[in-house]
């Protein structure tokens, strides 16, 4: 049987994509479906060999109606995700504008400043958390020592154990560790803004704010949109920062969805229940991604810019 050129081309494409497809099925689709299956059972870590019994939607119902659900949702959506992502985008944009400014160029500090900005990003999250825990330490930490020396506080503050300071402390660590990526990405986007447009606006009498607001920012929007989406997904699912900083405590005050998944699976041993939380998280993120693209469609923005 002789294939037409189009069919041959399709066959070649299919054969080239097939290994990737198999990898995706093996390493992504299968675990996802298995996790979904577990979420409808009462399997525990002690019953891994025997398997769990089906419980229908009981795990989902228990989680969504539990007394801690609202607190965990607020912690995850507001503190962990919204606050930290907004801080990152604003600070990242600030750093990008600073690094792109003529001021640093005149001071011959552009390269040094870029290198310094990259240091937090190059620090592994585990190391970042340990370093910050030491900085926050009430007995030996330099932040407390400085605050006491300057008279701003009279008693040391247990930053990661005090209900007032624990979330700002976690957000500080996340922002410190992850803002450089935003800054560097926005810096790259800033360098695509046509200089003739900026010069033309200057000739037309636009001030710096107007140039930024009506020329620079629209060029940055596609990058900001993608970075926001990625940051939201990374942060929403993030486990490391909260777990290593506070272990979801004090009590369960900083418990978020990702730490709840861990606590239920590997502390309370309830794998089925934990799988249900994982599936809920995936649904929430998928819905968020769909809505985000609907309201901030990237292709639209690219059209506008292009």
């Amino acid at each position: 049987m002789k294939l037409s050129p189009l069919a041959r081309e399709r066959f070649t494409i299919f054969m080239m994509l097939f290994p990737t497809f198999l990898i995706l099925v093996g390493f992504y689709l299968y675990p996802t479906l298995y996790n979904l299956e577990l979420s409808f059972t009462d399997i525990t870590l002690l019953k891994l060999r025997q398997g769990g019994d089906p419980v229908g939607l009981a795990n989902y119902t228990e989680f969504l109606t539990s007394s801690s659900f609202f607190d965990i949702a607020i912690n995850t959506v507001f503190w962990l995700t919204a606050i930290s992502v907004v801080c990152r985008i604003i600070l990242g944009l600030g750093f990008a504008l600073l690094l792109n400014s003529n001021f640093l160029k005149r001071m011959h500090m552009t390269t040094l400043a870029r290198l310094i900005l990259l240091v937090p990003w190059a620090t592994p999250p585990v190391v970042a958390v340990i370093a910050w825990r030491w900085l926050f330490d009430p007995t030996h930490g330099p932040i407390n020592s400085w605050l006491l020396a300057t008279g701003l506080i009279s008693d040391p503050v247990a930053f990661t154990a005090n209900l007032t300071t624990v979330w700002p402390s976690i957000v500080t660590i996340i922002v410190w560790n992850t803002t450089p990526l935003i800054g560097v990405s926005l810096l790259a986007a800033l360098q695509t803004v046509p200089s003739d447009l900026l010069e033309a606006s200057e000739i037309d009498g636009a001030n710096r704010w107007q140039s930024f607001r009506f020329i620079t920012l629209p060029y940055l929007m596609p990058t900001i949109s993608v970075l926001t989406l990625m940051s939201v997904i990374w942060t929403f699912n993030n486990f490391v920062y909260v777990w290593l900083t506070t272990g979801a405590g004090p009590g369960t005050y900083t418990n978020v969805l990702a730490t709840e998944v861990y606590l239920k699976a590997f502390v309370d041993l309830r794998l089925g229940y934990s799988a249900a939380i994982g599936v809920t998280m995936a649904i929430v993120m998928a819905a968020f991604g769909a809505l985000y693209f609907r309201f901030f469609g990237l292709s639209d923005m690219q059209d506008k810019v292009g």
């Binding site: 154990a161 209900l163 405590g249 004090p250 009590g251 369960t252 005050y253 606590l263 502390v267 309370d268 041993l269």
Partner: peptide
């Protein structure tokens, strides 16, 4: 019940009460 799971829920409840996250009665 197992000592481990009991230990974990107790530590969390006491942590919540001691930190002021919950009142001792609620915890």
């Amino acid at each position: 019940v197992g000592v481990g799971p009991l230990w974990n829920v107790t530590s969390r409840a006491f942590g919540a009460a001691l930190s002021g996250q919950n009142s001792p009665e609620q915890a």
